[in-house]
């Protein structure tokens, strides 16, 4: 199993721990990653909020490179994954549009490479059974709320690999690690990531709603598959608590961090120190790390 690896900008800045643990987990599970050479930013929300053609061209430049590598793309970031999947979806049966995109990026873009999210690769292609077999330190007693957010599973015509209203893939992975998942209401509610800088007030409210729901469902922590979600839920948790006078103290993991932990990787290698809500105390209490 080999993929063209597209880390995306966040994994080189705010989410380097996601990048590192992605590589670790893939290595453990025999998923070979070859980074797309000289990849560019997918443009994310800002591009498609600005110009339709630009929103297709930026991911297409990366996809065209993957085509040359003869590999399908895996992207850990939900937003990058979504933009790539959207580009493939829109150009699939539209030769004219594909031609325009090729002209803009100055390279042939055929639309032959698929794009997958890292979660899909690990949960569907590799599967919980294989994952379970690699577990050395089961995450016993840890109750997590699996948070998928919007871009992993929506819109289903573009994503389609997990249920859009009640996705299960991350829950199954967590169960395979020995953790317990809670059934909760805000699995796929939006955290407002694209407004995090410009309308922080909105993001605080949306984040509060999600944290409230996770806490009410009895979760010890959240687990996610998107650097933006993590930045909001973890990085802004303090501000939420201050604004709304609440107290959550819910660590927010990348699912790959928990996988690495269960695979027996030493906790200090997993970037927990970079979290705003330090998860080490919780892991210690649960006698996991």
């Amino acid at each position: 199993m080999k993929y063209a690896y597209y880390p995306g900008c966040s994994l080189h800045s705010t989410a380097t721990e996601y990048d590192a643990t992605t590589r670790t987990v893939c290595q453990t599970l025999g998923v070979e990653l070859e980074e797309i050479p000289d990849w560019n930013c997918c443009g994310a929300t800002s591009a498609h909020a600005t110009n339709h053609l630009l929103s297709l061209a930026l991911p297409a430049r990366d996809l065209a490179k993957a085509e040359q590598m003869g590999l399908d793309v895996v992207a850990p970031c939900a937003a990058c994954y979504n933009r790539m999947a959207q580009t493939i979806h829109e150009t699939k049966d539209n030769e004219v549009l594909r031609g325009r995109v090729s002209a803009v990026i100055g390279a042939d873009y055929e639309g032959t490479a698929k794009a997958k999210s890292l979660l899909e690769v690990l949960a569907a292609d590799v599967g919980p059974k294989v994952v379970e077999a690699k577990v050395q330190k089961p995450l016993k007693g840890l109750r997590v709320a699996a948070y998928y957010g919007c871009l992993l599973v929506r819109p289903p015509a573009v994503t389609g690999w997990d249920d859009a209203e009640n996705p299960q893939s991350m829950d199954k992975l967590m169960t395979a690690l020995g953790a317990e998942t809670v059934d909760w209401s805000h699995k796929t509610e939006c955290c407002g990531a694209s407004l995090t800088v410009s309308r922080t007030d909105i993001v605080l409210k949306l984040t509060r709603d999600i944290l409230d729901a996770a806490k009410a469902a009895g979760a010890d922590a959240l687990v996610c598959a998107c650097p933006m979600c993590q930045a909001n839920l973890d990085g802004r948790q303090g501000a939420v608590e201050k604004t709304y006078k609440t107290n959550y103290h819910l660590p927010v993991f990348y699912f790959t961090q928990l996988m690495s932990l269960a695979f027996g990787i030493e906790p200090y290698k997993l970037g927990f120190a970079r979290h705003s809500i330090d998860p080490r105390e919780l892991l210690h209490t649960k006698e996991i790390a």
């Binding site: 929300t45 498609h48 909020a49 957010g149 919007c150 871009l151 929506r154 819109p155 289903p156 859009a164 209203e165 796929t188 939006c190 407002g192 990531a193 694209s194 407004l195």
Partner: peptide, 8 residues
Amino acid sequence: ASCATCTT
């Protein structure tokens, strides 16, 4: 926020 809940 382009979360596409509406579209879905």
